[in-house]
Design a protein around this nucleic acid. Structure first.
Lengths: 145, 145
DNA sequence: CTCTATAATTGTATTAATTACAAAAATATA
DNA sequence: TATATTTTTGTAATTAATACAATTATAGAG
């Protein structure tokens, strides 16, 4: 990790009024490097192997502060699993019901016509689709034969 | 509850290959009567007071079978709470970050342009917004003064 | 109507994710 | 350097959900 990279990450935290401690930088770095929507436990497992003193509570505290600050999102397709990702605009999440993979897709949220939210202040938008990914779809068809 | 109502509920279950037991009819009835997205625990608490022998496991089993059959949806804005609602097409869920209220709004999902899901079989679509409902928005403004 | 097989329900025990909280360590400030 | 504040740790507690074996209810055969 170069100095520059660390500086950029620090800056990202400071801009959101989060003090750039070592652990927080590490969690943020992990989220940037792993856009495959890790669970809190996956983040802990990986970072704990690098930083043996890291506690799970810190990971949870850090993730919660990130979500509160809008740095990250907590996503859950059906309420069964809670996963995190770096906030990136205009993408939805697809979850395959068979293999569990979570895949980003791009959407144009501005084109979404909404009725019934007059007077509401909308700050967060999440779109979750589910079904079968191409390979699982193939398997499903083969099984039926 | 009139005979007619029970017949309609029974039919709804049978059509989805779910045997219309007394408890299942009661859970389905509850979901129809309470479109405010109850948790499994809320459903249990209310029905348990009517049916003292009802167990929580049955409520969970029933809800899971409903979701699997497409009769109900499990929703979760941020992975913290799991809530259920009767499947109604073309509506999204708004969750107020301040008071926690969950409000339906209508959307035209067909108008949503999606890229990156070619070859996928999409069977479920959920749209979650969050922010402040009108009354909490007012309170927030007043506090800042 | 009775017997039997199957399905549904119960209740307890277990698992797993998350939070609470107080003590310890690290960091910033005077 | 001393002190106050923040961060982190580690354990305990909480909570939602599931597993599973025992019990009860139901449907169909005879």
């Amino acid at each position: 990790m170069t100095e520059d990279r660390v500086e950029i990450l620090k800056n990202e935290l400071v801009k959101k009024d989060i003090r750039p401690s070592y652990h927080r930088i590490k969690v943020l770095e992990y989220l940037h490097a792993h856009e495959n929507h890790p669970t809190a436990d996956e983040i802990y497992a990986e970072l704990h192997s690098q930083i043996p003193t890291l506690s799970k509570t810190t990971v949870y505290n850090t993730l919660n502060s990130f979500v509160e600050a809008g740095l990250a999102r907590a996503i859950s397709i059906d309420g069964v699993e809670r996963r995190f990702d770096i906030t990136v605009i205009d993408h939805g999440h697809f979850r395959c019901d068979r293999c569990g993979a979570i895949i980003n897709f791009s959407i144009d949220l501005n084109a979404l016509a909404v009725h019934g939210l007059e007077g509401f202040q909308v700050t967060g938008k999440n779109v979750y689709f589910s079904g079968l990914c191409p390979s699982c779809n193939q398997l499903q068809i083969q099984e039926k034969e």
